[in-house]
């Protein structure tokens, strides 16, 4: 894999990590059955979750995971961009800022001081922002984590020089395609499926769990109308805010539907710690 033979004509692939959990890049290793064949078609040149051996750039395609949260990130993403013919972001963090973008909506530093004994050692930005806020992005793959089939599809489309077949419509259409009965209509379950981008195969509704929006807003998401309906069906404002404030909290369509009272309610004096509040859900 770390061979640097000049006769190798395979396009090179690099994987980069910013503020993230590594789950999305591990989706590449999750392509177990296809992985060997894939490495025959692309040369994995930089992927530290897989190998310490790396090949220097420039790279034909870079997969970028994570959001920009530190001054160092701001510089590093520019280098990645400069070294990449194609830059594809993978996952909710890279596309919208991730769960760590919750800090964008509170007093700067308040989360860090609640979590770390010595926050003064941290050097972070006040906000967590998507990759596209810093450099040009050629393609965004959504999800928390991404779907490995979609990752393969993007790589195969790249290799064939065609457009990836990746939908921008709602999760509802995946429920209908697999004949999952609508939980919102038949059970009044709070479900973000109607405003969430497809791609997971409607995994949660298929096990009777409402969609929690991990693929972020769909192309045409009308979140205000859905939350008005969920409120009628019994969801409280707080429940709706929590539903929208997860992995894609900073995606504009989700962010704009969050109640205006939310920021005040998340003052650290009132609830012991927002991070603990999150863990209880």
């Amino acid at each position: 894999m770390s061979s640097t033979s000049n006769s190798d004509v395979r396009p090179t692939l690099a994987v980069w990590k910013f503020a993230s959990c590594d789950g999305c890049q591990l989706s590449l290793l999750d392509c177990e059955q296809e992985l060997l064949a894939l490495t025959g078609a692309v040369r994995i040149a930089h992927f530290t979750e897989m190998s310490r051996a790396t090949v220097s750039g420039p790279y034909d395609i870079s997969l970028v995971e994570g959001s920009i949260t530190t001054p160092d990130d701001v510089e590093r993403i520019k280098e990645v961009r400069a070294n990449s013919r194609h830059l594809v972001t993978i996952g909710a963090c890279a596309a919208s800022g991730g769960i760590q973008a919750l800090r964008n909506f509170v007093e700067p530093g308040s989360y860090a001081s609640a979590v770390y004994a010595h926050p003064e050692y941290l050097e972070t930005l006040e906000t967590s922002t998507p990759i596209s806020a810093h450099v040009a992005v050629d393609y965004e793959l959504h999800g928390c984590p991404i779907d490995r089939h979609q990752l393969l599809e993007v790589l195969l489309a790249f290799l064939a020089g065609r457009r990836p077949v990746v939908a921008g419509h709602s999760v509802c259409q995946e429920c209908k395609a697999r004949s999952t009965v609508c939980l919102l209509v038949s059970d009044k379950t709070a479900c973000l499926g109607p405003v969430t981008r497809a791609g997971c195969g409607a995994l949660c509704p298929s096990v009777a769990r409402g969609c929690f929006g991990c693929f972020g807003p769909s192309d045409c998401a009308n979140v205000a109308s859905l939350t008005a309906r969920l409120r009628l069906l019994g969801s409280s404002d707080g429940e709706l805010d929590r539903l929208l404030q997860t992995f894609n909290a900073a995606a504009p369509a989700f962010r704009s539907a969050v109640g205006v009272g939310r920021a005040a309610a998340v003052s650290l004096g009132q609830s012991r710690s927002p991070s603990h509040e999150g863990a209880e859900r």
Partner: peptide
């Protein structure tokens, strides 16, 4: 203002016939 654009009405409709054509390639 009310419509979610989710597409449910079209997929449960017994006469809606719109379709797309997806061309894909595999690794082999």
């Amino acid at each position: 203002e009310r419509c979610l654009s989710c597409g449910n009405c079209t997929l449960v409709c017994p006469t809606c016939f719109c379709s797309d054509v997806h061309d894909t390639t595999d690794i082999s």
